[in-house]
């Protein structure tokens, strides 16, 4: 049972957002992914989209076929059913990261905001096994979480105009492997050579929501070797767990 009732809110003239919490928690993320699966399985007429995010799911509908009221009722019916138990992650990714100053311009600043030294920050990131909580903003880009409480650091108020692809960035207890050509308010704390989106391949998206990810530090020179090696995706390995 979720601790609070999910909120239903309009999101466009053809959509309802079902929001499970106003703060990111692992439980709210689990509820959202679980609701997404059950809503998709319910296969309701006039529903055009069931897309999940960190703590919410957008249910899109065709106003020519159904109405907001009917869709809201269908959502409530699915929510009334007890949640299934979600098993652990299906896959574990291990991804190398360079944390040298040239590759991590804001590591010191982010670590200070979390009350840590840079070395402590790196150790905590290496120790964390984070989950792909959502994919978005840019194609295939994962929102990974959650880091311990003291990583609840805000975004910067001014935007960083651009970041190299594969940048490891952080805010609000999460990590992102950056894949967008856009400004961001998240802080740049490391660099991977991992590509989350390979549009030219038959499987364009590396991650699936629910995957586990663990990062490990490599030296700057080892990182440059990884960058020069096209045989692997950024030196990452992917272990199938179940």
């Amino acid at each position: 049972m979720p601790t609070t009732e999910p909120e239903l809110r309009p999101l466009g003239v053809d959509g309802i957002l079902v929001r499970f919490a106003r703060r990111l928690t692992s439980q709210a993320n689990k509820s959202a992914l679980d609701f997404r699966d059950r809503m998709q399985a319910a296969d309701i007429a006039g529903i055009t989209e069931v897309a999940s995010s960190l703590v919410s799911v957008r249910v899109g509908f065709d106003p020519d076929v159904t109405t907001r009221q009917e869709v809201a009722q269908a959502i409530k019916a699915v929510l009334a059913v007890h949640e299934t138990t979600v098993a652990g992650p299906k896959r574990l990714w291990r991804i190398p990261v360079a944390f040298g100053p040239a590759y991590a311009p804001q590591l010191e600043e982010a670590a200070a905001l979390a009350g840590l030294t840079p070395a402590q920050a790196i150790a905590e990131i290496e120790a964390a096994i984070v989950r792909v909580m959502a994919i978005g903003f840019a194609p295939g880009q994962p929102y990974l979480g959650m880091l311990p409480d003291h990583w609840d650091i805000p975004r910067q108020s001014s935007l960083t105009e651009s970041l190299p692809p594969g940048a490891l960035i952080t805010a609000v207890r999460q990590l992102i492997i950056w894949a967008a050509d856009a400004p961001t308010g998240w802080r740049h704390i490391g660099q991977t050579a991992f590509r989350v989106y390979l549009p030219e391949t038959s499987q364009p998206f590396a991650f699936t929501a629910g995957d586990a990810v663990q990062f490990h530090a490599v030296s700057d020179s080892a990182f440059r070797d990884i960058q020069g090696n096209n045989d692997t995706n950024g030196g990452a390995t992917c272990e199938v767990l179940r």
């Binding site: 999101l11 466009g12 959509g15 957002l17 929001r19 919490a21 106003r22 703060r23 990111l24 897309a51 995010s53 960190l54 703590v55 919410s56 957008r58 959502a134 978005g136 903003f137 840019a138 929102y143 975004r155 910067q156 108020s157 001014s158 935007l159 805010a171 609000v172 967008a180 856009a182 308010g185």
Partner: peptide, 30 residues
């Protein structure tokens, strides 16, 4: 918490400046 976006959303960046998002916007934003 970052959440789903639809084109047309009016987003306030850090300094409270509005941007209206168009067709090629990001899918999730904070």
């Amino acid at each position: 918490v970052s959440d789903l976006i639809v084109p047309g959303d009016i987003q306030m960046t850090g300094d409270g400046v509005p941007y209206v998002l168009l067709a090629e916007c990001q899918t999730i934003g904070g």
